[in-house]
Design a protein around this nucleic acid. Structure first.
Lengths: 182, 182
DNA sequence: GAACGCATGTAACCTGTTACATGATTGT
DNA sequence: ACAATCATGTAACAGGTTACATGCGTTC
C-alpha cells in the first residue's frame, strides 16, 4: 500500500474545525495535538497552497479589525471526500518511536551506573512535568466542553497520552531502583 | 543546543558490541533494537564510511570461509571518546510520536462511531501481537543471558516496551467500551 | 520607536527511505 | 540453473526543520 502524506490530512482535518489560517493551525497544533503530532510553518504554508491547487480547499482573503489580514481556507466537497476516505481507511502502521534514552541505556554497559541513573532521572522529571500539563488540560476540557462530542474524542487522545506517560514514569522509578541495587 | 546526529552514535555504539559490518548492524537493529530505533542500509553504509573519514573508526577487509568478504569496522580512541561524551550528555528530547490512530480519532467527530471502534480494534490487535513478541524475547534473554550486565540493560529497554505497550492495549480496551456506550 | 503578537512565506539544509544494482557462496 | 543468504553500495526522492525575511497593527 502506498504511503500516505499525512500532513495533507492534518491540514484538511483542521480546517474543518474552524481553524482556517496557517497561523491558527500552527497554534492549535502546538497547544492541542502536539503530544501526537507536530508540524512546522515550513510544512504548513506550502501544503495549504497545494490543497488549493489540488482542489481540496479554497482560500479567501479576510481583513480583520485590529489584526493583520489573513487567509482563510475552506474545505471543498472533493476535500471532504478525500478526508473521509482517509479516516475510514485502516491505519497503516503503529508508530515506533526513536528513543534517545533507550539508545543510550542500550550502550551503557561500559559506563558508570551513576550516569545511567542520572539520565533516567532527568527523563522522569521531564515526563512528570508533561503529565502535569496533560492533567491540567484534562481538567479544563472536563469543565468546559463536558458532554459535547468534540470533547469526547479530545479526551480519548489525551487519555492515551496520560496512560502511556504514567507507564513511562513508573518504568523510570523501577529502573532507577534496579540500577541502584546493581 | 545543537542537535546531534544520532545515526553516528548508533553505529559507533554497535561496533563496540562485536557487530562490525554494515550487514550485521542491520541484522541486530532489526532483531533487537527496532522497538526503539530503526535504520536502513541507505543510512548505514554512507555513515560507516563517514565514521572512517572522521577518524572515529577504522575499517578492515575480511575474507570468510563459506561467505562473501565483508568489511569490519573498529572504533578508534577518538571514536570511543566521542561515544562516551554523547552517552554522558543529558538527553536532548523526549520523543513525541506521530500517531496516525490518534490523529484519525481526533477528526472522527463527524464519522460513524463504528469506524472509530474498528480503527481502535485493529490497533489493539497489532499491539497485542507486538506484546507477545516482546514477552517471548524477554523469556529468551532471562534464560540465556541471566546475570550478565549486557542482559540487564537489554531487559531494561525491553521492559520499557512491555509497559508502554500494555498501557496502550488497556487504553484500546477502555476506549472501545467508551465508544460503544456513547 | 521599541516590543510584541499576528500573519505569511521560503531557501537551505538535513535526514531518511525506497528501489535498484551488484556480486559471492552455498545448497538443491 | 536457481533460489537463498550474505554482503555492499547508491541515486532519486520524500518529508521535514531551521533560520530567515517581511510586514501589519497595537500597546507602552
Amino acid at each position: 500500500m502506498a504511503k500516505e502524506n499525512y500532513t495533507k490530512y492534518v491540514l484538511l482535518g483542521l480546517i474543518t474545525t474552524n481553524c482556517r489560517s496557517g497561523y491558527a493551525i500552527k497554534q492549535i497544533i502546538d497547544n492541542s495535538i502536539s503530544h501526537f503530532w507536530k508540524i512546522s510553518y515550513g510544512q504548513i504554508y506550502p501544503n495549504l497552497k497545494k490543497l488549493v491547487d489540488d482542489g481540496l480547499a479554497v482560500v479567501e482573503d479576510t481583513s480583520q479589525e485590529g489584526k493583520p489580514d489573513k487567509k482563510e481556507y475552506f474545505i471543498t466537497d472533493a476535500g471532504r471526500e478525500e478526508l473521509q476516505r482517509w479516516l475510514q481507511q485502516p491505519i497503516e502502521e503503529i508508530p515506533t518511536v526513536k528513543n534517545e534514552l533507550l539508545l543510550k541505556l542500550y550502550f551503557s554497559r561500559h559506563q558508570p551506573t551513576e550516569i545511567a541513573i542520572e539520565q533516567v532521572r532527568f527523563y522522569q522529571v521531564e515526563l512528570a512535568s508533561r503529565l502535569k500539563t496533560y492533567e491540567q488540560i484534562e481538567r479544563v476540557i472536563q469543565n468546559t466542553g463536558e458532554g459535547t462530542e468534540d470533547a469526547m474524542y479530545w479526551l480519548i487522545t489525551l487519555d492515551y497520552g496520560l496512560r502511556t506517560t504514567r507507564a513511562m514514569v513508573e518504568w523510570c522509578e523501577d529502573t532507577i531502583k534496579k540500577l541502584r541495587e546493581k
